[in-house]
Amino acid sequence: MTDELLIVDSLSAGYLGEDVVHDVSLTVAAGEVVAVIGSNGSGKSTMLQSVCGLLAPSGGSVRFDGVELAGVKAHRIARSGLVYVPAERHLFPHMSVRENLFLGAYPTRPSADQLGMVYRVFPRLEERTGQLAGTLSGGEQQMLAVGRALMAGPRLLILDEPSTGLSPILASEAYAALVELRRDGLTVLVAEQQVPLALDLADRGYVLDRGRIELTGTSSQLAADEGVQRAYLGV
């Protein structure tokens, strides 16, 4: 398999010497949308944080486009094109929408085209361009977090729980925007506990339970799985 953009191999990670993620392996090919589903506390965020460099993995390897990322600093990973959108968003609250987007393109000064591209996906952000990020609604903040990540021109976009803190309607809207990005060929790895949303978007998925991959398959296989249905789909 030569076109795998991200290869996570036997990754373990945790806090204060206590692993929360055990021996996780997964891959994402260029152009693919892959979901990691699991309930709250299953280790999704920990796993993603150790992929993007915010957390040092305790074991295993993460290769992005053939380059080992374990031990590489988060800002270097971001600049190499692996861009992470955390569930807490980590926007700059006292800066305008526009300035937040500008920083997404750091260290270059973004072109009007780049801004225009993000504003096409999220017209709402253009309306709010001068508003301080801290005063945006939850849905708008999520748009801005994804928009800021898009400004970097990511080769792989990693989203942690984009539905966090959003009403069902807003969560669906957020996912509608992701469907649009997917159509443009963006490669996405998304962790989500709102399983129906994630499986609608993704080509394939992994089920993470208590820090281990329990199941993997195409989205339709997972949606048809009895265990998944019972645990996450409320069937």
Partner: peptide, 20 residues
């Protein structure tokens, strides 16, 4: 702008590719 971003949210700054 990068300086202000580190003051406001250091993790956010790192995720934008800024070296605090």
């Amino acid at each position: 702008r990068a300086t202000r971003s580190v003051i406001q949210d250091e993790t956010g700054a790192r995720l934008c590719g800024i070296n605090p």
